[in-house]
């Protein structure tokens, strides 16, 4: 129960950086010298998910110090690394404890671990286990034979949705800053500054910003395969276009065409940016591809945002 609450909190981004277990050797059941050794990271969410799959299974759990980061990200940052595996195997004196010479590592650890070098250093053979711990019982049952499905990463609707709370949490500081900025920019007018205008127009400015945020951080993850285009900046822009049009339709009587266009440009640039940022949370975009996309998208987003701000500030002067 406590673990479930903890899991929910880190999924929302609370305490995510310090949600760890101590590295070292743990037991599932009462393992002995013949029991398998499963290697994992010290992010508590990872550890808990793994443990949950091991009811009825007897095994050793060798937990690496990945600074509280999950297996795949840690492998990419080289903390779930060849060196760390070697270090933990030596610290736990596995060669004295274990009769066999096999370590089962999660397949996604391969990004940071060279099986060959581990074997040379500590004499243990690295067996690549399935991607998901959910498949470990079957994998062990079949004497460590996998089917192709066990070795593929997916990105289902649910898997995409659980990423949204953290995305929102990460932009919270930006959102807080957007409030005073929106009101300030909205109050500028022919009478230097109007608090009334700041209040009324500021709310609309925030709506435009929020339309972009919702498009980029909620609609893009949720509707990912159905939004047109391969580039995420484009998907974000399209989602933001739709959200922006909705805001525009509601706002046009009170604001007029120029201001509505400004709000739409604001939503477009913000939505495109946050949609583009979602590339970092997917298991299929390549860094080279993201950089290529960004070299075109970021300048376009910057110019669109600048235009939006100019039009917004200019509107009161246009009578």
């Amino acid at each position: 129960m406590v673990d479930k609450l903890g899991s929910a909190m880190v999924r929302a981004g609370i305490g995510r950086g310090v949600y760890r277990v101590a590295p070292g050797l743990y037991c599932a059941g009462k393992p002995d010298g013949d029991s398998p050794v499963l290697v994992t990271a010290n992010y508590k969410l990872t550890f808990d998910i793994l443990r949950r799959q091991l009811t009825g299974i007897t095994a050793w759990l060798l937990v690496l110090d990945t600074r509280g980061v999950n297996v795949w990200c840690a492998a990419g940052k080289k903390t779930f690394s060849t060196e760390e595996v070697i270090r933990r195997v030596r610290d736990a004196r596995l060669d004295q404890l274990i009769r066999h010479r096999q370590l089962i590592l999660p397949q996604l650890g391969a990004t940071g671990v060279s099986a060959r070098v581990v074997k040379q250093a500590v004499g243990f053979e690295v067996i690549w286990g399935p991607v998901r711990s959910h498949d470990i019982p079957d994998f062990l049952d079949r004497d460590m034979k996998s089917d192709p499905g066990m070795r593929r990463v997916t990105f289902s609707f649910t898997e995409r949705l659980v990423l949204i709370p953290v995305e929102i949490r990460l932009l919270f500081k930006t959102f807080l800053w957007s409030i005073p900025i929106a009101f300030l920019l909205s109050g500028i007018g022919p009478h230097i500054f109007s608090f009334r205008a700041a209040w009324f127009r500021g709310q609309w400015a925030l709506m435009g910003f929020l339309a972009g945020v919702v498009a980029g951080t909620i609609l893009v993850p949720a509707l990912l395969p159905w939004l047109p285009g391969r580039a995420f900046a484009l998907k974000g822009g399209i989602a933001a276009g739709i959200a922006g049009i909705l805001v525009g339709i509601v706002g046009i009587p009170e604001l007029g065409m120029v201001a509505v266009i400004s709000l739409m440009l604001l939503a477009l640039s913000v939505g495109s940016y946050y949609g583009m940022n979602f590339t970092g949370s997917t298991p299929f975009t390549s860094p080279t591809g993201v950089e290529k996309e960004m070299r075109v998208a970021v300048p376009v987003q910057a110019v669109t945002l600048a235009l939006a701000i100019i039009l917004w500030v200019a509107t009161p002067f246009l009578g």
């Binding site: 590339t279 390549s286 860094p287």
Partner: peptide, 23 residues
């Protein structure tokens, strides 16, 4: 570009340039 293949190829037949994909 996760790099798992290149890191585990015994004959260095595979190369790839891994990196951080976050915008």
């Amino acid at each position: 570009e996760c790099g798992a293949c290149a890191l585990n190829c015994p004959t260095l037949a595979i190369t790839v340039n891994p990196g951080v994909g976050c915008a």
